[in-house]
Design a protein around this nucleic acid. Structure first.
Lengths: 210, 210
DNA sequence: TAGATTGTTAATCGATTAACAATC
DNA sequence: TAGATTGTTAATCGATTAACAATC
């Protein structure tokens, strides 16, 4: 895995899609796939696919293409899918519930360790087998448990405060659903899911297409 | 609004963030902002901001900067935020519930007209004031109501079938949360929110940063 | 008028596409 | 061996940054 230089973010964002398409090929018992065939499935060009993959090594074979299972495994390795991750969810509202019930997490070795909320009616209840704890217990919980990812499902006014606690508690990554730019030290990664921005892009294109 | 040529998608994706930051400036009673100051808030460069905005017209004034309220309004217009949109949600699971309760929708003139599901225990119930209808009623509902956006919150095996019905029923845009590439005619816009891809990008960077 | 800051052009940088030699 | 398809280099395209004249 050659990685002297930084891989462009656009490349990283394409990898999960390759991986997902390869999963479907596995499900339909395909053993091999050419960059051209993968291009048709993914919508990216064959040239781009070959360039992307060669950032990480030569996974293909001339005259043959790529071995579906091997490539799937390789991309999984690149994306960090070989290890498990401990998660906690901050904010037990509808979005927090939706993510706690997101079946993909179990499938891929993400372990939801706890949810946190301030609402007395939620604290102590269980969501899909995960206990909802009081927000006041967060610091202590982070001290006692190695948590990799904090999922911020609070409203925007609490998001930065929660993020600060997560960072102080040693969390490595933040999956942020609050509509705000969270500030964290360089050692912590933030991945934003800004639904309103996505929706606005949709309405823009609706009005161009009509 | 000059628009002979196609505005790059990367520009469109930045507009909602500008807009959101301008909202915060409005909330803190700022009247004017320079591209430089907006650069610090948004994280994009001043040059980029001026370039982006000038795709749509000259909203600024030399020596002064941009009028916060006017720019906010202008970007809203560009993004299609001056009109209302009728929505329906397909799939009444946790994600469907979360979106039905997403307060941002009410704030911005998105009108949730119905939810659809196949589960007998859900049909007839109300989610945040919106009635859950049987999936078998979808075609008829689309005939009788002008729906702009369909939000797909089904599992991946149903997503394409649901999308086909939405397209046939005259929907203009699809907000797709199912982990699959939906195929639609060119006249219909699809905006994907692929949570698993976002999560994998996060784990990639976690492992690079550690 | 002097200072500030835009709008816009030109320069740079980076990403995508094309092409093809290497090779299975 | 002939055909197929990668890995990789070179060419193109597009997006970002820099610079500055225009002008409020």
């Amino acid at each position: 895995m050659k990685e002297q230089y930084k891989i462009p973010d656009v490349v990283i964002r394409r990898l999960p899609r390759y991986r997902r398409c390869l999963e479907e090929l596995i499900a339909s018992d395909k053993d091999r796939i050419s960059s051209n065939a993968l291009s048709e499935i993914t919508g990216f060009t064959a040239s781009q696919i070959r360039q992307d993959l060669n950032n990480f090594g030569g996974f293909g074979q001339q005259g043959y293409g790529y071995n579906v299972k091997e490539l799937h495994k390789a991309i999984g390795r690149i994306l960090g899918n070989t290890r498990a991750y401990n998660l906690i969810i901050l904010g037990g509202g509808n979005l927090g519930h939706a993510i706690a019930n997101y079946t993909y997490l179990q499938k891929e070795h993400y372990f939801l360790k706890a949810m946190f909320d301030v609402s007395a009616s939620l604290i102590g209840t269980y969501v899909n087998g995960t206990k909802v704890l009081s927000y006041s217990e967060l610091d202590g919980f982070l001290d006692g448990n190695k948590i990799d990812i904090g999922v911020i499902c609070t409203n925007k006014s609490s998001a930065q405060e929660v993020a600060d606690k997560l960072v102080a508690g040693g969390v490595k990554g933040i999956w942020n659903f609050a509509p705000i730019e969270i500030k964290v030290p360089e050692t912590v990664v933030v991945e934003n899911v800004h639904l309103s921005e996505s929706l606005h892009a949709l309405t823009y294109y609706i009005n161009r297409t009509e």
